Amino acid sequence: MDMRPHFYREEINSTMWEVQEKYTRLKQIGTGAYGSVCSAINEKTKEKVAIKKLHRPFQSEIFAKRAYRELRLLKHMKHENVIGLLDVFTSASCFDDFQDFYLVMPYMFTDLSRYIHKAGIIHRDLKPGNLAVNQDCELKILDFGLARSTDAEMTGYVVTRWYRAPEVILNWMHYTQTVDIWSVGCIMAEMTNGKTLFKGKDYMDQLTQIMKVTGVPGPEFIQKLDSPEAKSYIKTLPHFPRKDFSTLFPKASAQGIELLEKMLVLDGDERPTAELALEHPYFDSLREQDDFPQPEPYDDSHDNATLSLDEWKRLCFREVKSFVPFPRRDSKRKNTLTMSQ
């Protein structure tokens, strides 16, 4: 008796989708350089889901490596406030037929612009558009396509400039997980004031706007910079003093201002880690023990590997076939965070 799931084919906007029969009513909701996303209904659970099909993931070594990394990261994410995988499948029954795979994730109603660190992962692209919100006001971080493991050497391209840490903008130095703390500070500032904090027209304008708030750094920080150009550039800047954050954020509470002060610091070494930031009194009324599961460290041994296309493809096939869904906690607790608390 054949126990394998049955598949059907459907062309959606000139792309052929081959999905399991339980996923119905496919409707394209997004498309980009690396793939497209459809909403669908899982007929077994009646749940609305988002299905992502990568665009020709095995057309080159680079595409295959990117596909493998995205699959590995999504499989690793097991937290109710991070978009993880509900399912991953391929219609290929053997490796020789393997050309495509599909990532199934929870469907989110909207994102923050319109309405994670113990594991050793840096997101690099935290911004309102990457914070999904559902009808219960539950928030999830999404789009780990750009996420990189901590130890890998990283360059600062593709990330939206307004939420980007200054050390990423100019590739000043080997950076750490506190680049995400900077982005969180920018998002919190925007939620507080209702407008983008650093809306730079270009890289230099972005940096100038940042320094008008943080102040121009002293010699200890300048010494840390890897780039001689960055060192000489900062020395040419007029002396901006650090702004008074209580004036900058008149609607925020004293604790909110104190937290923003700690996160929006030019020197990444001086910013708190995620763990430290979460211990701040600002979060006292929101903290629940279940919010802090112990994550497994992410194994990034393949992140910098140079493998052949066939080897990357075999790794992807192995990951698709070994997928086991994570039992989800049914949480209806609303993540309602008000800036005035």
Rank of each mutant, 00 (worst) to 15 (best):
K44M: 11
Y298D: 07
N81H: 10
P325L: 07
P295E: 10
N42D: 14
N81R: 00
T24A: 10
V104Q: 07
K262V: 00
E288N: 11
L139S: 05
V82Q: 01
S183Q: 01
E258F: 03
I51Q: 02
M154E: 07
P5T: 05
P106L: 15
M77H: 05
N304Q: 14
K53D: 09
V49H: 07
I12N: 01
R148W: 02
D136M: 15
F249V: 01
E270D: 15
W172T: 00
F95Y: 13
Y157W: 14
V320M: 13
D151I: 09
D310Y: 15
D290R: 15
L26F: 08
K224P: 07
A230V: 02
G84T: 11
S285V: 14
Y115V: 14
S331R: 08
R314T: 12
N130T: 14
I121C: 00
V168G: 02
D269P: 00
D267Y: 04
V158H: 03
M108F: 13
Q341H: 14
E270P: 01
W17R: 01
E70G: 07
T178H: 00
R242K: 06
V88Q: 10
E258R: 08
T110V: 12
F292I: 08
L264G: 04
W182E: 02
F58K: 04
E138R: 05
Q223I: 05
T336M: 12
A147K: 03
P106K: 13
D143F: 03
E153C: 05
D330R: 15
H79Q: 02
H174K: 13
S91H: 09
K201I: 13
E21H: 08
A92S: 05
F101M: 00
E220S: 10
H117L: 08
Q99D: 11
I141R: 13
I41W: 05
I141A: 01
R314V: 14
S301N: 14
F221L: 03
R4D: 05
T176K: 03
R72K: 15
S322V: 11
K231C: 01
H239D: 09
R333L: 13
G30D: 09
V184M: 08
A92Q: 05
L278N: 02
K235I: 02
A119D: 11
Y163V: 00
Y102E: 06
R124Q: 09
D100M: 12
W312G: 08
P228C: 05
W162F: 14
T24G: 08
A254D: 05
L286Y: 15
